[in-house]
């Protein structure tokens, strides 16, 4: 589904991404872990199109040269980003934005606008799953939302848009354990054979609830290690220094 080859982002002489290779197939859940400043968010920005300059390498998504598409085209092709810091849009009802987004996707697929009653039914079901109060819909987008509410709102949008490829950028940060469980439940409800999910995080905890097929560790703009779900446990146990040591002394690496 997604194939990234030798992706580099250099701003001036600063290398932010330094040759990323990553393949994600339909049905897979990947986690990208790494400390702050390792380039995780930049990777998400490149995939979604927030960052469009200073890029080299290739990003292929479902046969498209992704870097050629506008951000909105990528979104309509099924790429969704759950933002780390969802922006506030005063005066725009949450439900209005979500409905506009759903209809933008439908239009792209050549479908008619969503029926108002069907839409309400569906969004209520999703809200129930995410334990969100109905008043949520009629508040301005993220305006005055708590950190946890913003994150839930991202997941609500994701469930309504049913993306092919969902990127979760530190969705777990700032969530208490109960909220993390609820959000994870939402994410798991989306996961199926046809979709892929990439979770960007620096805490392994979310991966207890959303079990990844692959875990990649990023350091200094590079994926320095890829492993199965146990990688997360190792990271929790040994910290990122463990990975650093692995790189420095590849022969002594733990399996």
């Amino acid at each position: 589904m997604l194939s990234i080859r030798n992706l580099k982002v250099e701003i001036g002489d600063k290398k932010i991404l330094n040759g990323i290779d990553l393949s994600v197939n339909a049905g897979e859940i990947h986690a990208i872990m790494g400390p702050n400043g390792s380039g995780k968010s930049t990777l998400a920005n490149v995939i979604t199109g927030k960052m469009e300059e200073d890029i080299s390498g290739t990003v292929e998504y479902q046969g498209y040269d992704l870097l050629e598409l506008d951000p909105e085209e990528r979104a309509r092709e099924g790429i969704f980003l759950a933002f780390q810091h969802p922006t506030e849009i005063p005066g725009v009802n949450n439900i209005y934005l979500i409905k506009a987004a759903v209809n933008a996707m439908r239009k792209h697929r050549g479908e008619a606008e969503v029926d108002a009653i069907d839409f309400l039914k569906l969004i209520r079901a999703k809200m129930k799953l995410l334990e969100i109060n109905e008043s949520f819909l009629y508040r301005s987008v993220n305006d005055g939302f708590s950190g946890g509410e913003k994150k839930r709102n991202e997941i609500l949008q994701m469930l309504m848009l049913e993306p092919q490829l969902a990127l979760l950028d530190e969705t777990d940060s700032g969530l208490d354990i109960d909220a993390l469980k609820v959000v994870s439940r939402g994410v798991n409800s989306l996961a199926d054979d046809g979709r892929a999910i990439i979770i960007v995080t620096h805490f392994p905890r979310i991966l207890e609830y959303i079990v990844p097929d692959r875990v990649h560790v990023m350091l200094n703009g590079k994926i320095v290690h890829s492993g199965d779900k146990n990688t997360a446990h190792d990271l929790e146990k040994y910290g990122y220094t463990w990975v650093t040591e692995r790189i420095n002394n590849p022969t002594e690496a733990v399996a």
């Binding site: 979604t48 199109g49 927030k50 506008d70 951000p71 909105e72 979104a75 309509r76 969704f80 980003l81 933002f83 969802p86 922006t87 849009i89 934005l97 979500i98 506009a100 987004a101 933008a104 996707m105 792209h108 949008q157 848009l161």
Partner: peptide, 8 residues
């Protein structure tokens, strides 16, 4: 960008 990422 937020709106565009939602397909608008």
């Amino acid at each position: 960008f937020y709106c565009k990422q939602r397909g608008l």
